[in-house]
Amino acid sequence: MNTSMNTTLAEKAATPTFSIAMEERKVAAASSAKAIAEKLDFWYGTNQALKNINLRIAENHVTALIGPSGCGKSTFLRCFNRMHDLQADTKYSGSIMLHPENINLVAKEVDPIEVRMRIGMVFQKPNPFPKTVFENVAYGLRLRGFSGRTELAERVEKALRAAAIWDEVKDRMNESALALSGGQMQRVCIARALATEPEILLFDEPTSALDPIATAKIEELITELRQRVTVLIVTHNMQQAARVSDFTAFMYLGELVEVDATAKIFTNPSKKATEDYITGRYG
């Protein structure tokens, strides 16, 4: 994996050229896949929300999902950690193969809890537990049987540092997480997901409830995260997708219209629908 190259590519996303897009595509081909969705369909009752999705998620890269409201971005994201299993009368078909073991994440016989222990999620609205900052971040570890005070403390600190919030909360570890600001809460939630070192981290519009400064911090964090984890992020904000992602997938009415290197999608999309959506956003 060439992470430094990706960073420079993301920076160049604002003034891309065709040759850079080509280069990125080569990177995409070279990077190994962390997960591959194939012929993925999903139903809420009789309402089919996802139709024949085929998508390759590159390992240790950021893939952004964009598309108009109601097109199925969240639905797709939530297939990866089997969140839909909590709702009655939902159905998956097709596959999302998790590499390297080649487990089909959406198969009935695969335990959704096992899936969630490997794939973390950060939600749209910060949702810390009404417990202390420490207990919030330690919870996933406790579920996995960690109980040694020093080991927990070490791992919690590591996660909080990785989420770029350590300095702000290191003296407030035993205060309620609900006393933090929205942006701080969201980073504690990211730390909570990072603490268990997930293989894929799912973000569903993680900054839509935050102000621009908190948003910038989290975007910076996501670009750093790709060095250790595969990221899949839903966003309504085009600039955000352009800033943080290596690849962008455009969804429309439950279908995947187009996926390509981010610079290519934003400068030279191959589908008319993609272009309409992107340009419409910017007027």
Partner: peptide, 22 residues
Amino acid sequence: PKAIREAAYGLGATRWEVTKDH
């Protein structure tokens, strides 16, 4: 709130763990 349950399930908690811990 549903969001709290989802946070706990998302970390890999079982139904009983979500109930007893949260």
